[in-house]
Design a binder for these strands. Structure first.
Lengths: 122, 122
DNA sequence: GTAGTATGTAAGTAAATACTTACGGAAAGG
DNA sequence: CCTTTCCGTAAGTATTTACTTACATACTAC
């Protein structure tokens, strides 16, 4: 994928329903890997690998105490992803508002049925 | 990937720097496929395929007029992605605030430096 | 020491992804 | 008609992903 930048890693981590569900579940509190894995129809190593992806994306931290591993949320990765989307949406919305206003003006000023389509005449 | 749900498709589309850059570029206004492709070190069909991914994610619309193809932004897909992150972050932040308060109370009340785990918890 | 628990990692495989080049369709213009 | 321009799609390939089973590690309890 050649997408090593932090944003790409974060979005890629979020692009999987199992990983998103893990995040939702961890919202209720830290959990061990085994307890997490019990909820999914896949092997425990698979869940562990999903956790590794989330950890690399800065969305989850694993704190190994003894043989147990507490998985907790960390807000770092999500902040960047949210910031990117928020900025895009902000400038977008502004642009759509301008466009909307533009069309409103056009409609008010003249009829101009926008015949640019397929050469017009019929 | 077996991730056909809309959210996964949207996040996967955002998980590529070229595609994100296309979105940023389209923010300034619609563009043809060829003009877009000129900015990237890859073939025109590759950009076209990126556009197909963005279109499937509901982030871009392609309006073919004659042999030109105007690519424009559409806010649908991004709304869902932003909503998901926003909700996560909201409940998260709340939880972190509680956690912070919890630790603050602990620190004030007593020392109790360990024994937190090995219980059932959840 | 041995046995048991919770976990990460290595190795292997099927599927998806990100490109490439080659080709075909649709409109503009001679 | 024919040529050019702009574009999408088919076919092929290298890399990445998402899982599996098997194994090694680190600690607890006896």
């Amino acid at each position: 994928m050649a997408a090593n930048d932090r944003l790409s890693v974060a979005f890629a981590a979020l692009a999987d329903p199992t990983r998103r569900d893990i995040l939702v579940r961890l919202r209720e509190g830290p959990s061990s890997v085994g307890d997490l894995a019990a909820h999914y129809p896949m092997s425990r190593p698979a869940v562990s690998q999903h956790l590794a992806v989330l950890e690399k994306a800065g969305l989850v931290t694993r704190d190994r105490r003894a043989q147990w591993n507490d998985c907790s949320l960390t807000p770092v990765g999500l902040d960047e992803a949210a910031a990117w989307i928020a900025q895009q949406r902000a400038e977008w919305t502004e642009r759509f508002d301008l466009l909307d206003e533009h069309f409103r003006n056009r409609r008010d000023h003249a009829e101009t049925p926008d015949d640019t389509r397929t050469g017009g005449s019929r």
